[in-house]
């Protein structure tokens, strides 16, 4: 028994061995291969170079070319684990793994903390949260007066910033999320359970004929 590999996928820029990726993530080998079908489509949507750039990432999220979005940009930065200015297949799978329904909750809490810690200081600061609220309002039809935003921030920090130093650290975030589990909803993608049925064509491109 053994593995038979085709060379086609391995020659794809940014490609990484699915067996290796499956061993490091919440995905099976078949699921990693199905994700490769999705990855190929996103990474060739603007420039067919086998890598996902910032614009391709935003295009995939918004389904159309749209002006820059702060939160999609932040997600891109976190997916771009090696800070290369693009997402390669390994980055894509490892990052999406955190969003798997079976991924450990601690990983989801950690990722969500980083997501909101826009300037990577190790704290979620009031100014960052305000910036994200304003970005949200600019993309929606919701209009809120500045004083309403401040009331929302006061209420949020009163609950989350237990130490009262004007910023939320990791342990405060953990407690806050435990009291407000709906905040982690955005960190779980039920689609990832059915990835092989969403992208069945992976079977035709599978590199793994048989796994011992």
């Amino acid at each position: 028994m053994g593995c038979i590999f085709s060379k086609e996928n391995r020659q794809f820029p940014g490609y990484e061995d699915p067996i290796n990726l499956a061993s490091q993530t919440a995905f099976s080998v078949s699921e990693v291969e199905a994700l490769f079908e999705l990855y190929k489509s996103i990474s060739s949507s603007i420039i067919d170079d086998g890598l996902i750039n910032r614009e391709e990432f935003q295009l995939a999220i918004f389904n159309n070319r749209k002006k820059e979005n702060l939160l999609a940009n932040r997600l891109f930065d976190l997916f771009d684990v090696q800070q290369q200015g693009f997402i390669d297949f390994g980055d894509f799978v490892r990052s999406l793994s955190v969003f798997h329904p079976n991924a450990p909750e601690e990983d989801k809490i950690e990722f969500s903390f980083k997501l909101y810690d826009l300037d990577n200081t190790g704290f979620i600061e009031r100014q960052e949260v305000k910036q994200m609220l304003i970005a949200l309002l600019s993309e929606s039809e919701m209009k809120l007066a500045d004083e309403t935003i401040e009331i929302i921030l006061d209420k949020t920090f009163m609950e989350a910033d237990v130490k009262g130093d004007g910023k939320i650290d990791k342990s405060e975030w953990q407690s806050f999320v435990c009291k407000n589990p709906s905040l982690l909803k955005v960190m779980t993608l039920p689609y990832l359970r059915d990835i092989t049925t969403t992208f069945p064509s992976f079977v035709f491109n599978s590199e793994v004929d048989e796994i011992a």
């Binding site: 999609a72 969003f99 919701m142 929302i152 949020t156 709906s182 905040l183």
Partner: peptide, 26 residues
């Protein structure tokens, strides 16, 4: 729900920019 009943992060999580589900809805 009215924004004032929600905390800031509940509101932010509604951003389309964080909606990775759209990657799978082709």
């Amino acid at each position: 729900a009215a924004p004032l009943t929600m905390n800031a992060f509940e509101l932010i999580s509604k951003s389309q920019g964080l909606n990775l589900s759209s990657l799978f809805e082709k």
